[in-house]
Computed example of a mutant assay.
Amino acid sequence: MSEILVAKNINKIYDEGNIRTQVLTGLDLTVNAGERIAIVGTSGSGKSTLLHLLGGLDVPTSGEVWLHGKCLNNMNETERGEMRNKHLGFIYQFHHLLPEFTAIENVAMPLLLRKEVPIKEARQQAVDLLERVGLGHRLEHRPGELSGGERQRVAIARALVTKPSLVLADEPTGNLDYDNAQSIFGLLAELQDTMKTALLMVTHDRSLAAMADRQMLLKNGKWENFDD
C-alpha cells in the first residue's frame, strides 16, 4: 500500500510563562491509501493536538510530518495551506460551516479557493455530493436552518468535494446523539470506500473506533496498547 502520511518521532511542548507542558511524546504513525484508522483517547490525551500537527495546522516541537513525500515542517504557512487544500479534508465535532452561506456555497468553497474550478462547475460538484449525502432537498438552506445531523452531512460533503487522499476527522460524531452518530459514521465510511479516501478519525467512542481497520490508543501523549 502507498503511504500518504508519515509522522516520525513527534513531540509537542507548550511553554506558557514558567510552565512547560509536554503534550505529545515520541509518536510515530503511518497512514496508507484507503486505510481507516481510529485514534482513541480521553479528553486531554493529545488527540486534537496530534490531528492539528498531522494536518499541517501546527508544527511539532520536534519530529517530522511527511505528506505525499514532502515534509510539512520545512514549508511556510502558505505552502502548508496549499498542501492541505490539495490533499486533505477536515471534519470537526462542531461543523464550522459559514453561517451566512447556503449548503451549496459551503461545500463549493474549497474548490473555489483553488481558483482552478469555474464557479458553475464547483457548484455542480457541490450539488452532486450533497445529493449523495441525502441533502438534495436542502441545497439552498443555511446552517441555521439545518439540524445537527444535516449540518454534519454538509461538513462531510465539504471535506470530500476536493477528492482528498486523506480525511482528518476530529470527534466527527461527538456532538450528535447515538442514532445520528451511527448514521453519520456509516455515511462517512461508505463515501470513504467509494472515493478511495483514507480516513484518520480521533474519537473517545470505542464503538465507532471498532469499525475502523486499525485502532490506536493515545494516553497522556503516548501510544498505549489497545485493550478491548
Rank of each mutant, 00 (worst) to 15 (best):
6 V>C: 11
56 G>Q: 06
13 I>F: 04
39 I>P: 01
131 E>T: 12
112 L>Y: 07
28 D>V: 10
174 G>R: 06
17 G>T: 14
91 I>P: 05
203 T>L: 04
142 R>W: 05
169 A>M: 00
154 V>Y: 13
95 H>Y: 11
105 E>N: 10
62 S>E: 04
128 D>L: 02
58 D>Y: 07
132 R>E: 07
106 N>G: 01
198 A>R: 09
175 N>A: 15
227 D>Y: 08
30 T>G: 11
115 K>A: 15
155 A>I: 06
48 S>C: 08
127 V>Q: 07
103 A>G: 06
204 H>E: 13
131 E>C: 12
46 G>Q: 09
178 Y>P: 02
15 D>G: 09
70 K>F: 03
99 P>H: 02
195 M>V: 06
190 E>N: 03
23 V>N: 08
203 T>P: 15
180 N>T: 10
185 F>H: 09
103 A>C: 10
64 E>W: 05
217 L>C: 04
104 I>E: 15
2 S>C: 02
135 L>V: 04
89 G>V: 03
125 Q>S: 14
35 E>M: 11
94 F>V: 02
18 N>T: 12
88 L>C: 09
228 D>L: 13
166 L>C: 08
174 G>I: 02
10 I>G: 02
51 L>F: 01
4 I>L: 15
206 R>W: 03
152 Q>E: 03
101 F>Q: 04
57 L>W: 04
128 D>E: 13
51 L>M: 14
107 V>M: 11
165 S>M: 02
9 N>P: 06
197 T>N: 13
135 L>C: 05
226 F>D: 14
123 R>Q: 15
76 N>W: 14
39 I>C: 07
160 L>I: 01
33 A>P: 07
181 A>W: 11
89 G>C: 07
18 N>L: 06
131 E>Q: 10
16 E>P: 04
148 G>F: 04
